[in-house]
Lab assay of single mutants.
Amino acid sequence: MEVRTIKVFTTVDNINLHTQVVDMSMTYGQQFGPTYLDGADVTKIKPHNSHEGKTFYVLPNDDTLRVEAFEYYHTTDPSFLGRYMSALNHTKKWKYPQVNGLTSIKWADNNCYLATALLTLQQIELKFNPPALQDAYYRARAGEAANFCALILAYCNKTVGELGDVRETMSYLFQHANLDSCKRVLNVVCKTCGQQQTTLKGVEAVMYMGTLSYEQFKKGVQIPCTCGKQATKYLVQQESPFVMMSAPPAQYELKHGTFTCASEYTGNYQCGHYKHITSKETLYCIDGALLTKSSEYKGPITDVFYKENSYTTTIK
């Protein structure tokens, strides 16, 4: 009895394709271990004539594949690729409408935090270190965002349907971005203890939790000093293409032309909904596939993004 075979390709990165001759009487799992086709788990399936010449994702289970996976995804987590594939199996079914010149995501599976993050990423200057993220990001900007969303979920250790947080998501993504040249110098002034300067680099240099107003941050924000008295913390120097200011959701007025974009969060910790506000020729609110415009805006804002380049204080 002759062994019926077909020729397929296996890959971990969709760049390096490895030619395989597979036995049609055995499952993919018996031949390769966990195997995925377009995100779908085909591990328990036997090869079919229609699979001839198709590319299958496999887990990096030998040295060659491990090197290829690390170079593309910059992670050695053995569960990463499987999590990416199972997320992709959902995100490829989502709709990605162009809204006001940006790629958004039609609401499904509690994905409003991903839509808000995706919209924000198209408006701030950011370059990702893992080629996987950078490639998928370019495709997302062009309207094909399924891979990018699935990668975000995998890097953030999230599953489809789980509630997510924009600030946490951005923080994970910033860790995989090139923020080497970003720098922030802060000064804390206390009447009792004097003053202390701190220099922050990388992710810490672009994120701040405690106030939404970048102007206020430049002037000074009140913080408790270690001595128990009130101290003032203010920005001395900022070198970065953008800054992200966050605070627990509270009524906040966004003035046209003073910011790049913002995240609105309605609801409580267990259950809520994100919308995205962007400042173009007027203010726009993007909620999944829905767009509304207004000249002014007041609502429960939790993150505001500002364009920056270089700032030095005039406070002496």
Rank of each mutant, 00 (worst) to 15 (best):
V3Y: 15
R4N: 13
I6A: 09
K7P: 09
K7N: 12
F9C: 10
V12R: 10
N14P: 06
I15P: 05
V21I: 12
V22L: 15
V22N: 04
M24P: 14
S25Q: 12
S25K: 08
M26R: 11
G29H: 11
Q31W: 14
G33W: 05
P34E: 11
Y36E: 03
G39P: 05
G39Q: 11
V42A: 11
K44R: 12
K44H: 12
S50H: 12
H51G: 05
E52A: 13
E52G: 10
F56L: 10
Y57A: 09
Y57F: 12
L59A: 11
D62C: 10
D62T: 13
L65P: 06
R66C: 12
V67R: 14
A69G: 07
T75S: 14
T75K: 08
T76M: 15
S79V: 10
G82I: 11
R83F: 06
S86M: 08
A87P: 00
L88P: 04
H90M: 13
T91G: 04
K95T: 08
P97L: 15
P97F: 07
V99F: 15
V99Q: 08
N100L: 07
G101Y: 05
G101W: 05
S104R: 03
I105N: 02
W107T: 02
W107S: 05
A108R: 15
A108C: 12
A108H: 06
N110D: 02
N111T: 01
C112R: 02
L114Y: 03
A115D: 04
A117E: 04
Q122G: 03
L126S: 01
L126A: 05
P131W: 05
P131Y: 01
A132I: 03
D135E: 11
A136M: 08
A136P: 03
Y137T: 04
A140H: 04
A140W: 04
R141G: 09
G143Q: 06
A145Y: 03
A146F: 06
A146P: 06
A146L: 01
Y155G: 00
Y155I: 05
N157C: 10
K158S: 03
K158P: 00
T159P: 11
V160D: 03
E162Q: 10
L163M: 09
V166M: 09
R167Y: 03
E168R: 15
T169F: 03
S171R: 15
H176Y: 09
A177W: 02
N178Q: 15
C182G: 04
K183W: 05
R184A: 11
R184N: 00
L186E: 12
L186P: 01
V188P: 02
V188Y: 10
K191D: 09
Q195T: 11
Q195K: 11
Q197M: 12
T199A: 08
T199R: 10
L200P: 03
L200T: 11
K201D: 08
V203Q: 11
V203K: 12
E204Y: 12
E204W: 08
E204M: 12
E204I: 02
V206R: 01
M207N: 03
G210M: 00
G210E: 00
E215K: 07
Q216D: 13
K218P: 01
K219W: 06
G220C: 03
I223G: 13
C227D: 02
Q230K: 14
A231F: 01
T232C: 09
T232E: 08
K233F: 09
P241D: 08
P241V: 00
V243N: 00
M244Y: 01
M244C: 06
M244D: 01
P249D: 00
Y252Q: 06
Y252H: 10
E253V: 14
L254S: 00
K255Y: 08
G257I: 00
G257W: 02
C261E: 04
C261F: 01
T266I: 13
N268S: 15
C271N: 13
C271S: 11
G272F: 00
K275H: 00
I277V: 09
S279W: 03
K280C: 10
T282D: 10
Y284D: 07
C285K: 06
L290M: 15
L290N: 14
L291R: 06
K293Q: 06
K293M: 12
K293R: 10
K298A: 11
K298P: 04
P300A: 10
I301C: 04
D303F: 02
Y306M: 01
Y306G: 00
Y306T: 00
E308R: 06
N309Y: 07
K316I: 11
